[in-house]
Simulated scan of single mutants.
Amino acid sequence: MLVPLQNTWWDETIGENFNQPMGHTLNTLRFPENTTDRQISRLSFIEKQRLALILELSYTAQAFLQDGPSVNMETDTTSKIEA
């Protein structure tokens, strides 16, 4: 699975893009409970980038190819992703 730096979202809200509930992972990366109801168009670049990583984790794949998965992210967020 390829997760590019500039990711593409197919549906209007965050929750519509996930194939399974990801509440715990959303909370770990500092997203509030109502995140799945938010519109993609209202997100910052960094929020979209963090969500793309969560979206990647919601799928089962043999390998993940990432183009700068944590570029421009805060150090503590990068540490949580790498853990």
Rank of each mutant, 00 (worst) to 15 (best):
M22V: 04
R30V: 15
P21Y: 00
T35Y: 00
T75L: 15
S41I: 00
E16M: 03
E74M: 05
T8D: 15
Q6F: 12
N34R: 00
D37F: 02
S79T: 05
Q39E: 10
D37A: 02
S44A: 01
T25H: 11
P4C: 01
W10V: 06
W10C: 06
L51M: 08
M1Q: 10
R50Q: 03
T36W: 00
A61M: 07
H24K: 10
Q49S: 09
T77Q: 15
P69Y: 04
I40K: 11
E47V: 03
S58P: 00
T60H: 13
Q49D: 15
L2Y: 06
M22F: 08
D76T: 02
T60K: 11
A52S: 15
Q20C: 06
A63E: 11
S41W: 03
S41D: 04
Q66F: 12
G15F: 03
F45T: 09
I46Q: 02
Q49N: 09
F64P: 05
E47N: 05
T75I: 14
G23L: 11
D11T: 14
V71H: 10
L51N: 04
T36E: 08
T75Y: 11
F31I: 07
M1L: 13
L51A: 04
P4G: 06
N19D: 10
M73V: 05
T75G: 08
L5K: 03
E74L: 11
F64C: 14
E33P: 12
G23H: 10
E47W: 03
N34K: 02
T35A: 15
